[in-house]
Design a protein around this nucleic acid. Structure first.
Length: 318
DNA sequence: ATGGTTTTTACTGCGTC
DNA sequence: GACGCGGTAAAAACCAT
């Protein structure tokens, strides 16, 4: 199999920008008109962005506007809306309170913070959302995924789906579903690993949540997403990524794609592309980063080479 | 539960550095 | 001889029914 130099090498990748979060190369997402970072999942125009909707132009403006308070967020059980009773010991005009009033305020504060998470549902919610936050940061997920996960969990709680279900199971399932909804490529395996669960039970919870809350099927991330992620985590030359992506974009033959695990396909494209550039990554490594076996990589390669265009479109001979 | 499909496991042979 | 690669058979995992 001699594929080297079948494909033109000089390609322009100057339009690429770097991810502000982790510094990786962003890839464009044509359908949605946004750019995403395949490694950390950062999206340039995040739909569920929880940041403040204003931008302070100078200190004065900041001071004026800061009183609108923190932006609401679904990832906190009370959406970040709560009254804090300060401990400054002064009244509204800045005068010091007398000692008896101070002890009163102490009591009030105590009860305020207690009542904040008073009902059992509220306590459960804040517990789950906390776990969810941990899981998200363990997986390096961006905020929009966290918000989506929180939204899903709230819905499921509303419908009593979460009743008498393991907390960690529900969080793992919602986080995984959120990844898929946001198009962030994290495998069930990865989520399960981060949550210290086995794949099977996460899958069970996931199906449950999918059926009860999400109703319609959410497709797993595309092969292209897998390719980008693979290239970035393995620190492969972006040129290889671009070739792999263009290859994947053209290989629409169902003989190649149907029923095949996207991770394996992505690995095959990346491997083939690296060979074409003469950058010869060992199958071993590509397979390892894609979390599939060499055998799978080989089989996918065989499918691609048998059915696909490398002969028709990429070879000068034909 | 089941059967069909895909992936993994485990092993072997070949060529090259 | 170690390494990368290709292949195969059988087991395991997955998925729709």
């Amino acid at each position: 199999m001699k594929l080297v130099s079948l494909y033109g090498v000089g390609r322009d990748d100057s339009f690429r920008t770097a991810c502000p979060v982790c510094g990786n190369t962003l890839i464009g997402d044509a359908e949605k008109g946004e750019e995403v970072c395949p490694l950390c999942g950062y999206v340039t125009s995040a739909p569920a962005d929880s940041g403040p909707e204003w931008k302070a132009m100078d200190m004065e403006e900041k001071n004026r506007r800061v009183r609108v308070g923190a932006p609401t967020t679904l990832a906190l059980h009370d959406m970040g809306l709560t009254t804090e009773i300060g401990r400054s010991g002064r009244d509204s005009r800045g005068k010091y309170l007398d000692p008896s009033m101070r002890t009163n305020m102490e009591k009030l504060r105590k009860w305020q913070s207690r009542s904040r998470t008073s009902t059992s549902e509220e306590r459960g919610l804040s517990n789950v959302l906390g776990k969810m936050g941990e899981l998200c940061s363990a997986l390096n997920l961006p905020d929009n995924v966290k918000e989506t996960a929180a939204k899903i969990y709230r819905d499921s709680a509303k419908r009593k789906v979460a009743k008498s279900k393991s907390i960690i199971g529900m969080t793992a399932a919602t986080v995984y579903l959120a990844c898929r909804k946001c198009g962030v490529s994290r495998t069930l395996k990865e989520v399960a690993r981060a949550a210290n669960m086995d794949k099977g039970s996460v899958a069970r919870y996931f199906r449950l949540v999918l059926k009860e809350v999400e109703k319609e099927y959410v497709p797993p991330p595309s092969v292209e997403k897998y390719i980008s992620k693979l290239v970035n985590t393995a620190k492969i030359d972006p040129k290889v990524e671009r070739l792999a992506l263009s290859l994947a974009g053209r290989a629409t033959d169902p003989k190649i794609t149907s029923g095949k695990a996207p991770a394996g396909l992505a690995a095959a494209y990346v491997y083939l592309s690296s060979v074409m550039y003469g950058a010869h990554l060992p199958q071993r490594e590509v397979a390892e980063f894609a979390e599939v076996t060499e055998v799978t990589v080989r089989n996918r390669c065989r499918d691609i080479l048998e059915n696909f265009v490398i002969r028709q479109e990429f070879s000068p001979a034909k």
